[in-house]
């Protein structure tokens, strides 16, 4: 109990209490998430698993502030996300969350550097500072020699590294990766997972969404979802 108190005071980033997400499809109501309560702490390395339809994408969208829950409470660093306007959500996404997607989601016509700079533009950071920060982020993912390449001139693994650099550049509170190895071959996927490991060791908080056991096993904590409920939340003992 004392342990939990301490964590609340300093280290809790995300606090989710009894959230539900209900979509209306025609006349039918779909309960994507029924009732989920969850805390995520600083420097957590968390994998959210579950078969398709289990609600993991919806949960990820809510955690990533791309979507808001229908019911329940979501506190991000003690700020109530469920009450926020679209603009506030955009601000949180910009400053606090770094996304890594399965399909990389880079701007096809922009160079690696421009892609990494994108969140900084919306943060209103000046060009010279932006360039410096983006260069550093690309260096951190080992791509300092691919700064001016466009996505179609890069391999899949390199593209995902650019995406990771973009996620890191604002020094967010959490990195949210949705099937980050889904479009990569095994070897490249492994490289990306090793990169996440390093980031975690450097103090970052990482949330992985995946349906692959091998990927989830990199995480320190695994949450399994089924039918919009948490089936299991445990420390990963395999490591």
């Amino acid at each position: 109990m004392i342990n939990t108190e301490e964590k609340n005071n300093g280290n809790t980033i995300i606090e989710i209490e009894h959230i539900a997400k209900i979509y209306q499809m025609g006349t039918e109501f779909v309960h994507a998430i029924r009732d989920i309560t969850l805390k995520i702490y600083k420097n957590d390395y968390l994998a959210i698993m579950g078969p398709s339809g289990s609600g993991k994408s919806t949960l990820m969208n809510i955690i990533g502030c791309l979507d808001t829950p229908t019911k329940g409470k979501y506190l991000f660093k003690d700020m109530d996300v469920s009450e926020m306007t679209d603009n506030d959500l955009a601000s949180i996404r910009n400053k606090e969350i770094g996304f890594v997607f399965q399909t990389f989601n880079l701007l096809a016509r922009s160079s690696s550097l421009k892609n990494v700079e994108l969140p900084l533009i919306y943060a209103g950071i000046s060009k010279s500072v932006r360039d410096e920060m983006a260069m550093k982020a690309l260096e951190n993912v080992g791509l300092s020699d691919r700064v001016n390449h466009k996505p179609n001139e890069l391999s899949g693994g390199q593209r995902q590294r650019v995406a990771v650099a973009r996620a890191l550049v604002t020094e967010p509170s959490i990195i949210l990766a949705d099937e980050p190895t889904g479009n990569l071959d095994t070897k490249t996927g492994l490289e990306i997972m090793n990169l996440f490991n390093e980031l975690w060791k450097a103090g970052n908080t990482i949330i992985l969404v995946t349906h692959e056991e091998e990927v989830a096993n990199f995480a320190k904590r695994i949450i399994k979802l089924r039918d919009g409920l948490i089936e299991n939340d445990s420390i990963n003992h395999q490591q």
Binding site: A90, S91, F99, L106, T170
Partner: peptide, 9 residues
């Protein structure tokens, strides 16, 4: 993509 990385409306 732009919205995800923080572009406002």
């Amino acid at each position: 993509i732009r919205k995800a990385v923080g572009a406002k409306k």
